[in-house]
């Protein structure tokens, strides 16, 4: 198994090198003065439809979907729990089926509760 991950690791090296090639070419063009580099304050300001931006962008942003994020944690962990069950399912028989049904039913209660509490709406 570790050998297989090692093979994927070789691809990781290539995958990191892949975007570095055009970036490197771009940098090289800059070194050869083919690519212009004439910074000025207007160019280096952020784009806001041609106006001078008012205030900073990194503010305390109202994340209206934070309840989704909470639900996500619950459901994602639960889905990952189900993966080993799914792989071993054929060997386990009716017992595993019923048990998974109970597991999903418990989750479903939470799901319905969240729905009724309007957690799944953009506030």
């Amino acid at each position: 198994m570790i050998e297989q991950f090692g093979r994927a690791g070789f691809l990781l090296i290539f995958a990191v090198a892949f975007p570095l090639v055009p970036i490197g070419a771009s940098v090289a063009l800059g070194l050869f003065r083919i690519r212009p580099r004439k910074p000025d304050p207007i160019k280096q300001s952020v784009y806001e439809c041609g106006m001078v931006p008012v205030g900073d962008a990194l503010v305390r942003y109202n994340v209206r979907y934070y309840l989704f994020a909470l639900l996500f944690v619950v459901f994602d962990v639960e889905a990952i729990f189900l993966y080993p069950w799914a792989v071993a399912y054929r060997g386990l028989g009716v017992y595993a089926f019923v048990e998974a049904l109970i597991f999903i039913a418990i989750l479903l209660v939470g799901y319905v509760y969240a729905w009724r509490k309007r957690a799944m709406e953009w506030i």
Partner: peptide, 15 residues
């Protein structure tokens, strides 16, 4: 109520 800062955004003129 969540404490958040309103952001003032220009939509336009170059949009």
């Amino acid at each position: 109520p969540l404490k958040s800062e309103p952001v003032e955004v220009n939509i336009g003129p170059q949009h």
